[in-house]
Write a protein that binds this DNA or RNA. Structure first.
Lengths: 142, 142
DNA sequence: CTTGAACCTACAGTAGCTAGAGGATGTAGA
DNA sequence: TCTACATCCTCTAGCTACTGTAGGTTCAAG
């Protein structure tokens, strides 16, 4: 039987985060000691590992909820899980494209800084100059 | 004189976002009509363009506040602005590295999906199997 | 003068946690 | 057994960067 702290260490999660997952129904309510402290078993350890791994892959908590549901019903079609993963992959590729553009522009900004006064600063100039903006009025993703 | 809606369209910002920027002190309080509606000039248009551009480049609102401050004091050293941009570049490169790793793993998941039942699903298997996790206990960034 | 789009304030909600207060529990050593 | 103290508990508020809604007012065109 694991305390919440031990579970936290084993999965690289904060204690509060585990309680938060319980609160939003992503983790089940565990057993308690007489004094009211949570005690976990291996099933919970596996489930939390699944959740953390999926989070590291960028899945939203909602997507993870779906994946857990699929995982709980082994007879269901794999297609849904595949669709979720594909959606995730698409999002990741979009973010990559954006970030690569940002890197280019930031590099340019840094290289062109002459080290003088801010009035000559390319960093500020690039940000001021709207016409150099590559991606106009695009939404700002995370 | 621009209404808030026109300013929003010109900069690709939502009206509420402009009011929010005003509230947190990123945009100045503009002039008002007799009826109390906001009216903007070119200075505000420039400032908001600066903010949006910086946001698209991934700068936090705090970083933008610093940049605006530098921009408002043209005598200051450029080094600070440069430092902010460098910090930002570093973050972008870290995010890129993470996302590239994620893409690899997601691609593998998707390609290996056999199309059968969830009990054989590679997507779920990969998420379940902690040992295949490349990046253990790393923090989850945006 | 009327209509309707755009404006106003104020407040609540989003994701995904994180931090703190103030107090209870569990366990190891003396 | 007592004590110390790390860990646990609940509850609430805060974070970033917005977004949405309700209920009401103003502006400009026809």
């Amino acid at each position: 039987m694991l305390t919440i702290g031990t579970l936290a260490k084993k999965t690289g999660t904060k204690v509060q985060t585990i309680r938060y997952y319980e609160q939003i129904g992503l983790m089940p309510e565990p057993g308690r000691t007489e004094g009211g402290q949570r005690r976990y078993g291996n099933a919970e350890l596996d489930r939390l590992s699944f959740v953390r791994h999926a989070r590291q892959l960028g899945f939203s908590l909602d997507a993870i909820r779906e994946l857990l549901d699929l995982s709980d019903h082994p007879g269901k079609s794999c297609a849904e899980a595949d669709a979720i993963a594909r959606r995730q992959l698409k999002q990741v590729e979009q973010r990559l494209a954006r970030l690569e553009a940002l890197r280019t522009e930031l590099k340019r900004m840094v290289h062109e800084c002459s080290g003088g006064q801010t009035s000559d600063c390319r960093v500020l100039e690039v940000l001021r100059d709207h016409s150099e903006c590559l991606t106009e009025h695009e939404d700002i993703g995370a």
